[in-house]
Amino acid sequence: MATLEINDLHARVAEEDGERILRGVDLTVESGEIHALMGPNGSGKSTTAKVIAGHPAYEVTDGEILLHLDEADVADIDEDIDEADYTWNLLELEPNERAALGIFLGFQYPAEIEGVTMTNFLRQAINAKHEEREELFEDEEAEADADEDEDAGYDSSPMEGPTDEGEIGVAEFQQLLSEKMELLDMDEKFMQRYLNAGFSGGEKKQNEVLQAAMLEPAVAVLDEIDSGLDIDRLQDVAKGINALRDEQGTGVLQITHYQRILDYVEPDHVHIMLDGEVVKSGDAELAEQLEDKGYDWVREEVYEAA
């Protein structure tokens, strides 16, 4: 069970006199929960997502983002786990380290990368995750010992080469991939294509969910994963998101403009952002109320209360 805990998060655009966008965001997402984060354009939803993942364009000026893990989350680690290894201050970590700990960002506009095939990319990512986790949880004393050992000579004959037990095998990778692609109703031809290059909007969004399924994150932040999808693809994507939760226990923070996807991915919690803060939280019913009454209703309520 992992918990992503955001406390009083303030962030601005990382440049001189950069615009203040987040003005005290509080939000907690646990494994296995589905949260919808809604709000008008410019309220700070996408910025929240990017700051969680560590986008360099934003500077955090106050607050914290913590990731709490439990034993099940570190079951793959061979090292002894210290008490301190169960809570991570994400703001101190690089984007790739955050990802290795189990943070996934599904992009609103995924990058198109020419010349890097989907297969190559996903295998690299899965292997990198494994390696990075080993490093993050490596005991520093043990690390120093290991260095000494290396200086002392080889444990095994150098002819045997490095032992790559951590690397995912080709067959294992292919099988995992086939399963996930079938679930998302994706054509296997995708795998020989270059990463998102020439993909339609819908294909890119499916691909984001596929990557989440392959990387098995603790918490997936999905930024407008439903925008621009036709109804068939929306259902495929919804099926994929539900599977993330049901089969891998991923916590999902889904940023959306539209009630529509919530018919297929029922949220446990709904949050509404206004002007850089989460101003109102509730259950699925809140999204329906919002659909009927619009953001002005929220605005009025919030300002009256204040």
Binding site: G54, P56, N96, A99, F104, P110, G115, A128
Partner: peptide, 29 residues
């Protein structure tokens, strides 16, 4: 492209490997 790099890093790939993959990819055409 900084966004390309961030995208790859958000998938756990470290910045140097990501950059190398982008360079290799750049030569592919």
């Amino acid at each position: 492209d900084a966004e390309d790099l961030f995208y790859m890093e958000s998938r756990t790939i470290d910045p140097i490997t990501a950059r190398n993959m982008l360079v290799e990819g750049f030569f592919v055409p």
